[in-house]
C-alpha cells in the first residue's frame, strides 16, 4: 500500500511538472493572466469603486460574492466544531479546586461536590495545576486593548493599505485567545461568553449577506453596492466604497467570533469549564 502511495505521489508530481513546460515565463508581463482581466482591476479600481487598494476592491466588490461564501465557509467551520465537540450532557468532574482569595490557600473538593462557603471568597482553579504568573498576566492585560485597537484599525484601513476584515478579525480573535492563554478559559469566557461568540459569527456573515440583500431590495442586483447611494451620502461610486467597508466589518465580526468559538470548543474539549 505504501509503495502504491509513493508511485501515485511521484506520478502526480511528474504530471504537474510536465505541465510547467508550457507555462508562461515567471513574472512575464505579457502572460494571459496579466493581460485579460487584471488590467481593468488595476487601472479602473479608483475610478469605479473609489478604493485605492486594488486587492480590496477585487476581493470585496468585483468578486465580492466569492468572499461572502468564503466567510460562510468560516462560519460553517465554527458551527461544525460546535456540533461535533460540544458536550451537552455534562458530568461533574471528579474533584474541584478552589483558591481562597484572601489567603491564597487552595482546597480540593472531591466526589463532584461543590463548596458550601460563599463563592465570592473563592476562585475556581483548573484541575491540572497551572502556574499563576504575575508578569505574563499583567503584560497581556495591558497589551490586549492595544491589540484590539490595532485589529479595528486593520479592518477600517483595508481600503488604503494591506488589511481588511479577515486580517483584522483574526487579530481581534487572537486578542481574546491571548486573554485565555495568559489567564485561563474562565476569564476569557467572562469577557466573551459562549453565546456571544456563537452569535457574533452568524451576525457577521449576516451583515455581509444582508448588505447584498439590501441592494437587491433597493432594485439593483445582489451585492451591487451602487444601490446604497440611496441611503448613504457621496453618490454611486462612493457608495461602493462604503459598501465594501460595511462588508469588511461583517467579515471581521464573523472571523473574530468564529476563531474564539472554535478555540473554546477545542481548548476545553467542548466542556467549557477549563482548558489550556
Amino acid at each position: 500500500m505504501k509503495t502504491l502511495g509513493l508511485i501515485i505521489v511521484v506520478l502526480v508530481g511528474a504530471v504537474l511538472v510536465y505541465a510547467t513546460v508550457d507555462f508562461p515565463p515567471f513574472g512575464d508581463p505579457a502572460s494571459p493572466a496579466s493581460l485579460h482581466v487584471s488590467p481593468r482591476y488595476i487601472e479602473k479600481t479608483v475610478e469605479e469603486t473609489a478604493v485605492p487598494n486594488a486587492v480590496t476592491s477585487v476581493l470585496a466588490d468585483y468578486r465580492g460574492f466569492d468572499t461572502m461564501f468564503e466567510t460562510t465557509v468560516i462560519f460553517s467551520a465554527g458551527v461544525a466544531c460546535f456540533l461535533l465537540l460540544r458536550v451537552s450532557r455534562r458530568r461533574p468532574p471528579a474533584s474541584r479546586q478552589y483558591r481562597h482569595r484572601l489567603t491564597g490557600l487552595t482546597f480540593r473538593v472531591k466526589d463532584g461536590r461543590e463548596i458550601s462557603l460563599p463563592l465570592r471568597d473563592f476562585e475556581p482553579l483548573d484541575s491540572i495545576w497551572t502556574p499563576h504568573d504575575f508578569i505574563i498576566e499583567k503584560v497581556c492585560r495591558y497589551l490586549i486593548p492595544f491589540i484590539q485597537l490595532f485589529g479595528l484599525y486593520v479592518i477600517a484601513h483595508g481600503h488604503e493599505s494591506p488589511g481588511g476584515g479577515f486580517q483584522g478579525g483574526v487579530i481581534l480573535g487572537a486578542s481574546i485567545i491571548l486573554l485565555s492563554v495568559s489567564h485561563n478559559l474562565r476569564t476569557a469566557l467572562q469577557r466573551m461568553g459562549e453565546k456571544a461568540s456563537a452569535l457574533f459569527s452568524p451576525f457577521g456573515v449576516l451583515i455581509y449577506a444582508g448588505t447584498g440583500a439590501l441592494c437587491l431590495v433597493l432594485g439593483y442586483n445582489f451585492l451591487d453596492y451602487q444601490a446604497l447611494a440611496a441611503l448613504l451620502p457621496g453618490g454611486p461610486i462612493m457608495a461602493r466604497s462604503h459598501g465594501i467597508f460595511l462588508v469588511e466589518v461583517g467579515v471581521g465580526m464573523a472571523v473574530m467570533g468564529t476563531m474564539v468559538w472554535i478555540f473554546k470548543n477545542l481548548a476545553s474539549l467542548g466542556r467549557y469549564d477549563e482548558g489550556l
Binding site: H36, D61, G64, F65, D66, N221, F222
Partner: peptide
C-alpha cells in the same frame, strides 16, 4: 444569466 454585484462577466461573477 445574472450578474452578481452588477459587474459584467469576465470581471465579476
Amino acid at each position: 444569466s445574472y450578474r452578481l454585484g452588477g459587474w459584467a462577466p469576465p470581471w465579476g461573477i
